[in-house]
């Protein structure tokens, strides 16, 4: 099961990187989504895949009765998802603002901050 998931991660990373290399910012965003989910899956696999119950101790017990799932990777993934969600939302807002202000989402045409040198200058 782990190896299957690892293959999935590999494909996601490959597709994500391919998309991120495009000069279109929307493609970049989609690549980013794929890549961040691949990263989440890496943590998920790192916590080992087991068939077990949620790590909750039943009422009146001191310790769980049967083997429980590792809760830590899930907590980390949830945190990573929340953060990734925030960053992605922010980036999306930025791309939208860029499109409104600059009229393009092609990064090759964005030369405002670093204008190409004019002929005969220094």
């Amino acid at each position: 099961m782990e190896s299957a998931l690892v293959l999935v991660i590999g494909v996601m990373v490959a597709a994500g990187v391919y998309l991120m290399l495009a000069s279109n910012l929307l493609c970049y965003l989609f690549g980013l989504i794929l890549l961040s989910n691949a990263a989440n899956l890496v943590i998920f696999v790192a916590g080992r895949l087991t068939r077990a119950v949620p790590p909750l101790i039943p009422k009146g017990q001191e310790a769980p009765l049967e083997p429980v799932a590792n809760a830590l990777p899930q907590a980390m993934i949830l945190t990573a998802i929340v953060i990734g969600f925030g960053l992605l939302a922010f980036t999306l807002a930025l791309v939208v603002a860029c499109y409104r202000e600059l009229g393009t989402i092609d990064s090759d045409h964005m030369r405002l901050a670093e204008p190409p040198p004019k002929r005969g200058e220094h």
Partner: peptide, 10 residues
């Protein structure tokens, strides 16, 4: 609040 702030901006 954060999600709505973002939604209202976009």
């Amino acid at each position: 609040g954060a999600v709505l702030a973002l939604f209202f901006t976009i």
